[in-house]
């Protein structure tokens, strides 16, 4: 038995284009019974997403896509993403902000703001004014434009600077050993110690196949269905998950950069129950109650 889900997608709080409310509404229309917003490295969209989901009658998991690295700081460096899923009640802000992943997200927002302001400060006077430097400086980290919103701002106001910013912004991950220079094993341990469930995001995307297999063997769950996996790739990872007793999920990794396509399958009830933290009257989720 499978539950219609989309447990991985992005909003304006990272590199997506949808507000949390738009994100939830699209998935309500598609009839999903359990959804999650999983922005990169922060949980800032969760309170709004959870409130919108509650109004829509859709179950909602607080989630975040944690960035780690294989071979950080070397020529073989590549990002590895771990999804962390909290049980639903953690969406309440007083509980959410007590999690270590929330607090890490606050540091990520502050670091992003620093990176953008440093880059803007190095531009000629006219470009700085055009990008609204004074306004940006006045913004608190939590209100500062996230990745896609920053790119949109540059594109709208100084499109000729886009390529330069795109080259610059990669440093955000590659230069910051404190926030991102951990290996996936450390990230998994961190997620677990915070009370969340770890799931390897889009395992078919990584270049280092041996390390990927090792991480998937260690992780609690694997993202099987995602827009980044072709059908045969998804099947390979589903077989791996089932052979190794792993949870597995069905999601989209939607960034609102293409027409939305539902995952071809739902998430097993056993995985949903584990993510929710309790056994379900599954009929209630399927009925949308």
């Amino acid at each position: 038995m499978y539950v219609p889900t989309d447990l991985h997608g992005h909003t304006i709080f990272s590199d997506g284009r949808a507000t949390p409310e738009e994100y939830v509404e699209l998935r309500r229309g598609h009839g999903f019974r359990l959804i999650a917003i999983a922005d990169h490295d922060l949980l800032a969209a969760v309170p709004r997403g959870a409130a919108a989901a509650a109004r829509a009658g859709v179950a909602f998991l607080p989630a975040v896509e944690v960035t780690a690295f294989f071979h950080f700081g070397t020529s073989l460096a590549e990002q590895v993403h771990l999804l962390a899923y909290f049980p639903p009640h953690v969406a309440a802000p007083p509980l959410l902000r007590r999690t270590a992943l929330w607090q890490r997200g606050v540091r990520v927002q502050a670091r992003w703001r620093e990176l953008v302001l440093e880059w803007v400060a190095g531009l000629p006077e006219g470009d700085r004014a055009a990008l609204g430097e004074a306004d940006l400086v006045a913004m608190a980290p939590a209100d500062f434009p996230a990745t896609q919103s920053t790119i949109d701002r540059i594109t709208r106001r100084r499109p000729e600077l886009f390529d330069a910013f795109r080259r610059h912004h990669i440093r955000f991950w590659e230069d910051d050993r404190e926030l991102f220079g951990w290996d996936p094993e450390a990230a998994i341990d961190f997620i677990r110690s915070d009370g969340a469930t770890d799931v390897v995001a889009h395992p078919g995307r990584y270049r280092d196949a041996d390390r990927t297999l090792a991480i998937c063997a260690r992780a609690t769950g694997i993202e099987v269905y995602t827009s980044r996996h072709r059908g045969e790739v998804a099947k390979t990872w589903r077989d791996f998950a089932e052979a190794n007793g792993k949870l597995w999920t069905a999601s989209t990794d939607d960034h609102q950069n293409a027409a939305y396509a539902r995952p071809p399958c739902g998430t097993p009830v056993s995985t949903v129950e584990r993510l929710l933290g309790h056994a379900l009257p599954i009929e209630e989720i399927l009925a949308g109650r």
Partner: peptide
């Protein structure tokens, strides 16, 4: 959900460069 609300396409900038989106 069966209605197509698409009105065209546009090129937008993103983290990985330019992309054409509906």
């Amino acid at each position: 959900m069966q209605l197509s609300t698409q009105i065209g396409t546009a090129i937008v900038n993103g983290r990985f460069g330019q992309v054409t989106i509906p």
